[in-house]
Amino acid sequence: MNRFDGRTALVTGGRSGIGRAVARRLRDEGAQICTAQRGADEEFPSVAVDLSDPDSAEAAVAEVVERFGALDVLVNCAGMMQEARVEDMSVEDWQRNLAVNLTGPFLMIRAALPRLRETRGSIVNVGSIEGLGSNPGHAAYSASKAGLHGLTRAVAVDHGGEGIRCNAVAPGWIDTDLNLDFIDSLSDPETFRREIGGIHPVGRSGRPEEVAAVVAFLAAEEAGFITGQVYAVDGGRMTQLSLP
């Protein structure tokens, strides 16, 4: 299936984790891929971007269009998570989390809109189930992802008439290298794996490739009547009630 033949996709945070899986999935379906992050990408063509800098976002989009001729898909994958409750978090840390998780996608979308208008393109934001609920100590992460979900809906409403669609995925626990390294660092990794699997109705945690499959669907023309939606990719975790 080559749903993206002749199309160009820009994936922020495409060097690792979910972003890497998304870049590979879109490439395998025919897209020209460019990733965007601070460092170079050894697998894909890439552009340097500082997600807190409006000029950097504009320059990154301009460079992609200069290299590839157009921009058809923007996927905002880059993100960070810092554990702290509200009263324990400095204003500087709060602002840094929002800058990466919310302002960064805003700046990339703003820079990309004129190009996406030309191609009647699509945007997919990688939010989180923590934009729908929250784990303990995740004040900034939860707030920023909830904001990203809201931004997704706003862009869909404001720009749908121009042929631009904007959706989001909200992953749950996904076995990225970062999460797997965290598990391996614990004193009892196997117990944790069983417990994390047990909070999902499907009985396991997710894979980056499973999130990438939903991103690819939302970015493709076959999802042409879907916009402003946030798709949970969480193995049913948010649906399952705790025991009474």
Results as ranks from 00 to 15, higher is better:
Arg120Trp: 01
Leu10Gly: 03
Met1Ile: 13
Gly161Val: 06
Glu221Thr: 12
Arg194Asp: 13
Ala21Cys: 11
Pro201Gln: 08
Ala23Lys: 00
Glu63Pro: 03
Gly198Gln: 09
Arg115Leu: 06
Pro189Lys: 03
Met89Phe: 06
Val75Ala: 04
Ala143Glu: 10
Met89Asn: 08
Gly39Leu: 10
Ala78Cys: 08
Ala84Ser: 14
Gly160Asn: 06
Gln240His: 05
Val75Gln: 06
Lys145Met: 03
Ala70Tyr: 01
Arg7Leu: 14
Ala99Glu: 15
Met80Cys: 10
Met238Trp: 02
Phe68His: 14
Ile226Met: 13
Ile109Phe: 01
Glu66Tyr: 02
Gly13Met: 09
Arg15Ile: 09
Val202Ala: 01
Leu113Ser: 10
Asp181Cys: 00
Asp88Lys: 09
Pro171Trp: 02
Tyr141His: 05
Pro45Trp: 05
Gly150Gln: 10
Pro105Asp: 12
Gln229Ala: 14
Gln229Val: 15
Val211Lys: 03
Gly150Asn: 11
Leu26Glu: 12
Val64Glu: 00
Val230Arg: 01
Ser128Leu: 05
Leu132Thr: 11
Gly14Trp: 08
Gly206Ala: 09
Gln82Lys: 13
Ala112Asp: 04
Val86Asn: 04
Ile199His: 05
Val47Lys: 01
Met81Gly: 11
Arg193Trp: 03
Pro189Trp: 04
Gly137Ser: 03
Cys34Trp: 01
Ile196Lys: 02
Ala62Asp: 15
Ile109Arg: 03
Ile18Pro: 02
Val230Met: 05
Val157Cys: 00
Asp72Ala: 03
Gly172Pro: 09
Asp55Gly: 12
Arg24Ser: 15
Gly236Tyr: 12
Arg153Asp: 01
Cys34Ser: 11
Phe182Cys: 01
Arg115Phe: 07
Arg165Thr: 11
Trp94Glu: 13
Arg85Ile: 10
Glu210Phe: 11
Asp72Glu: 10
Leu113Gly: 10
Ile199Lys: 08
Arg96Asp: 07
Arg24Ile: 12
Leu116Glu: 06
Gln240Thr: 12
Met108Arg: 12
Ala99Lys: 03
Val91Ile: 14
Ile18Arg: 02
Leu178Val: 10
Glu190Ile: 06
Ile18Phe: 02
Gly161Glu: 14
Leu132Asn: 08
Arg204Asp: 07
Pro244Leu: 13
Cys166Pro: 03
Ile199Arg: 09
Ser122Gln: 02
Val65Asp: 09
Leu151Met: 12
Val91Phe: 05
Ala220Met: 05
Ala23Val: 13
Gln32Asp: 14
Gly228Asp: 08
Val202Cys: 04
Pro189Glu: 11
Arg20Glu: 11
Arg193Glu: 08
Ala23Pro: 11
Asn167Trp: 00
Ala212Gln: 07
Gln82Asn: 11
Met108Val: 12
Phe225Ala: 07
Leu98Ala: 08
Lys145Ile: 02
Arg7Lys: 15
Glu83Pro: 00
Ala57Phe: 06
His149Arg: 03
Arg165Trp: 04
Pro45Gly: 10
Asn179Met: 09
Arg67Met: 10
Arg38Gln: 14
Ala31Gly: 12
Lys145Leu: 05
Gly147Gln: 09
Arg120Asn: 08
Gln240Pro: 00
His149Asn: 05
Ala213Cys: 07
Leu148Glu: 02
Ser142Arg: 00
Leu107Val: 14
Pro171Ala: 04
Ser52Met: 09
Glu83Ala: 11
Asp41Asn: 13
Gly236Cys: 10
Arg165His: 05
Ala59Val: 04
Ile196Asn: 05
Cys34Pro: 00
